[in-house]
Design a protein around this nucleic acid. Sequence first.
DNA 1: ATGGTCAGCCTTACGTCGTAAGGTTTGTCC
DNA 2: GGACAAACCTTACGACGTAAGGCTGACCAT
Lengths: 238, 238
Amino acid sequence: MKTDESTSTGGRPARTPLSRERVLTAAAAMADAEGLAAVTMRRLAAELGVEAMSLYHHLPGKGGLLDGLVERVAGEIADAAATAVGALGADDSDWRHVVRARILAARSVMLRHPWAPGLIASRPSIPAPVFLLYEEVLGAMIRGGCSYHLAHRAMHSLGSMVLGFAQELFSPAAAGGDLEPDRAEAELAAMAEVLPYTTAMVANEMHAADDPTLGWCDGQSEFEFTLDLLLDGLARAA
Amino acid sequence: MKTDESTSTGGRPARTPLSRERVLTAAAAMADAEGLAAVTMRRLAAELGVEAMSLYHHLPGKGGLLDGLVERVAGEIADAAATAVGALGADDSDWRHVVRARILAARSVMLRHPWAPGLIASRPSIPAPVFLLYEEVLGAMIRGGCSYHLAHRAMHSLGSMVLGFAQELFSPAAAGGDLEPDRAEAELAAMAEVLPYTTAMVANEMHAADDPTLGWCDGQSEFEFTLDLLLDGLARAA
DNA sequence: ATGGTCAGCCTTACGTCGTAAGGTTTGTCC
DNA sequence: GGACAAACCTTACGACGTAAGGCTGACCAT
């Protein structure tokens, strides 16, 4: 057998219609468009006009592809966070401003890639590029005078927030599928019986939502509210 | 068909009826032991001494099985929360105590079933049994005098926390696999260069952890810290 | 007892997945 | 021109979820 070729690196890229970067870009686009579950080695290869096994020359396998996607997202977050912090100007002397900007940057990237939180959380261990993101936030807090103990807790709080805020918690109408107003009304009535408070809350909050650009459940303002809640509490504890 | 020869015509008295409950119990046990990914229709059936397709007489399919698992977990949480609130005594007049008890109960069940947060988050829409859990927390806040607006935001904050706090954020040693102290030391040194603050934090927090029953990164106290941070902030906003 | 009904379980088969193993093309350099 | 390796393809295997249909045995009215 000719197992001679042991995939030694080196050499030179003679002609690269296909590269790791191109594969990852296509994979991210597919995940954005159809969800992460739709990203299959075969489908991905087909999208690139190639056979499935060809991907293995640029990636170590499906796991490596997912790692690459995490790396991508982490990079996007790092970039977004860097520009956001840069735009702070003189305000960056307060760690709260820095942390807030970084977390909101992470959030904005997560919104672009809704599959990202679940992917990161599903990895067997925390991916190395994600550690770099934590490091930046951590550094801002320590340099700002926080104790390591407090900063540690903040990492947990903020991390779980960014990773857990993916779902749009309440969208029963969209979830059930509002095909007919008749059926929707019936479901609402049924819901009112077992979930009186929830129903009332939906009614109340829906009425309050006049901004046409946002749904009744504005994830962004909810997110910022929680973020400020945490930052206030952390600052008080510092 | 020649299946005649394999099945003994003699009596086989031992055939437990195999109900939906039995299937779900086995599935939950398997998920607890080997992770949710290990729960396969075939493996699950084998565990029950049955063929895969037989499960379809008690469940509508894999999705239905997952729904059943969510239902299970939600039921466990509801039970744990009910007893926790019952144990509050006169303290249950303060919504903060009630909410705190319910969230901690949810957390304790999530710890028993580490696959649960990911499963719930991965469902296409929020499962109905989970809505019931939210309803209880929501009711406690509204009856306690909170506005629907604040309660709505609290649902997001608390929900994302319970769902996002699953991972043990920092366990680089366990993640890398500490096969040899030599290699571990080398990795630590390499980490100190790119992640100076993180390394310092780990060192600092590890030293502070004297309680032998807990790892250096005590998820429970981190969780309660964040929970109290949120509850304090919510109470202040009320 | 007898034949009908039917729930519970099994068998087979299809299309999908990730990927191991090995063959084929293509471009570059000596 | 020949060698070489990188890039790509083909084939195949063992999983997966599940659609379609067959077998068995308990119950029942006749």
